[in-house]
Design a protein around this nucleic acid. Sequence first.
DNA 1: CTCTTTATAGTCCTACTGACTATTAAGGAG
DNA 2: CTCCTTAATAGTCAGTAGGACTATAAAGAG
Lengths: 239, 239
Amino acid sequence: MQGYDKYAFEPFAVTVDLAVLTIRAGRLQVLLVERGQEPYAGRWALPGGFVLPDESAETAARRELAEETGLADVSGLHLEQLRTYSEPDRDPRMRVVSVAYTALLPDAPEPRGGGDAASARWLPYDGPGPLAFDHDRILADAHHRVGAKLEYSCLATAFCPPEFTLGELQRVYETVWGTELDRPNFRRKVLATSGFVEAVPGAARLTGGRGKPAALYRAGPATALHPPLLRPSREGRPS
Amino acid sequence: MQGYDKYAFEPFAVTVDLAVLTIRAGRLQVLLVERGQEPYAGRWALPGGFVLPDESAETAARRELAEETGLADVSGLHLEQLRTYSEPDRDPRMRVVSVAYTALLPDAPEPRGGGDAASARWLPYDGPGPLAFDHDRILADAHHRVGAKLEYSCLATAFCPPEFTLGELQRVYETVWGTELDRPNFRRKVLATSGFVEAVPGAARLTGGRGKPAALYRAGPATALHPPLLRPSREGRPS
DNA sequence: CTCTTTATAGTCCTACTGACTATTAAGGAG
DNA sequence: CTCCTTAATAGTCAGTAGGACTATAAAGAG
């Protein structure tokens, strides 16, 4: 790798794939597009596209995210590189190396198909059978990563609107992990972690609630949880 | 991303870069090659090279690892994808997207330059000034990742020979984290984590030791640490 | 007004861990 | 051989985090 001219190399197409996750109707949902052409015509796929000549993968991912969600301002959303998939046969048409990103959205409006792709839609994480290409694996990796990061980072607030209740925050953990948490213990842990959330000055929330109105919180300045908030029981958090 | 023919895309060169870490002489050391040509002639760089047409990035990384270290059997070494670096200007000659990997080695023989590259050498992690390209950042990311994974995974044994003492294992933590740990507490924690290490049937080690001979252990079947072994004090473990 | 629902407050009790002290078993210096 | 140093191993003790659980408060539904 000292002088490129001395070495032959094959040029690859480089794309980004997006695993965009949100919580709607109490379920973990994914943004998917339906493929209209072969291969995998009719299958659901993760949104994505080519990295343009003057873009970094990160820039391309954020551009695609804006196009596929139709959101005007996508700058505040959590976007994080997941990993790169480069198996030679992952796309039957040509050699494509794909840099996968995970994005987390709070409220999740139904996407208006304002981009180049066919209309993207929210679908339940466990819902639609096998995805196109290796997207099942990418999506599973994204879910695994997000579940793990909930334990030791403040990532959960990325699923919440700017102001949220501790009940909503707890539902994020429960939905992603697929477990139930003890409410008093969850409150105690979150409030004891300085910088995780901070109370909104003078507010409570009543409108839609069926029970006692809950206090509102905002995401705090912290990014890491010390000590972590471990998921209950079951052993094994590989990789 | 439904039909590639409809979209223009630029072909990129795809490479792998390796952050190969080991512990030698009580210090964290990195495998580096000296660049002979511009750009960055004379600077140290991470070993790496092009992904070949029929290779995945993972395969290419393992091939480069074997070439650069000169080790005959590289199959047992810990190799893990770090992340992908794709800034358009990261290589002044052309557009290169690089998939970075982190590898951990136990004993660390001085590499015999048996590959295509100029002789690779072990250098202290904090040693050689600025590296070529964006390799300083890649190396820092690798160090950060390894430090974080020591907390919640059994990765530390990847730095150790097949049979090791708990003192050696502790030195891995101390060297990577740059902190000192309490020895009795470390022992208690490691031995209490089932599957982390297991005692070698009937053996102790005396030869080189200045003190009481230590018992030998092997890596156990576990991959994750529950609960984690957190580094002392200082807050903040970002990303 | 009562029941249901959700938020919030507080109490045990156990396990984990940080900070120690003590003991054992080598090698080295005299 | 004896003392000293070094490192491994054993054990103690207290503070704390967290799991399980009970109790109270404040809304809406009927």
